[in-house]
Design a protein around this nucleic acid. Sequence first.
DNA 1: CGGTAG
DNA 2: ACCGG
Length: 284
Amino acid sequence: MKPGHLDLDFCLQSGQVFRWRKIGSGWVGVEGDHAFHIRQPDATRLEVETSASREQVESFFRLDWDADEVAGRILEKGPELSPYFGELRGLRVMRPSNPVETFFCFLCTANNNLSRIGPMCWKLGSYGEEIGEIEGILLHKFPSVSGIAQIPEAELREAGFGYRGATIPHAAMQVLERGANWIQSLIEMPYAEAHAALVEVKGIGPKLADCICLFALDKSEAVPLDTHIWQAFTRLYHPEWKGKAVTASRYREATQTFRERFGDVAGWAHQYLFYENLLNWRSR
DNA sequence: CGGTAG
DNA sequence: ACCGG
């Protein structure tokens, strides 16, 4: 397999997918219905142990997109982002295949930090069907929406979910009211329509809706605007809003600016900005 | 603080 | 204001 430019650590550690564990130099996790053990012996090779097909692996890492070409296109349209692209060659926007998993994992991310999000997503995953064991790690498919809806609030609170112990099963109930297949049905909608439908769910605001659009629904123009992206936006494009709070209307304005500038690679531009900020923050 | 609701 | 660091 020729991964083009793909950095496993960047892809699996950059807040896009959460149920992956680093084991030595490799990674163990679940994608869709399949367990994976992946190693990257050098920059140009990928060793993948899985029952998933090659097509599924390539889709997950979005190898149908040329990362260098995308980065080039972003820098052409927005040279002001070049400081953020320094060391991030091989960072890709992933395409996880189970939108239900992405939906609920991102529900864990609001008002939270990465060190807690992983264990929380892992806990949700433990309610799904067991599909294997790699390096002593038990792997589960992600549970169904009704499986999530049935989890007692107390179990999640005990596991450190805080108020999300209530909001996550409640969000699952809301999804069920819309039909068991509602999340999947959003894939067929245009970005704006899917985003509008998602924020109707209590617990999903504009930022989470954009995460779900970008990673679960393959809407590459979605720009999840968190506090770091907001700061970058005010610094680069709108200094008079520096220090101001992100209102709903400023959220629309800022994300629309990225979309007008970067079009269908706006989501990739966001991912580089986001991960660069995350690395800077980690190194402090 | 990788937000959202009231 | 909200769980928990």
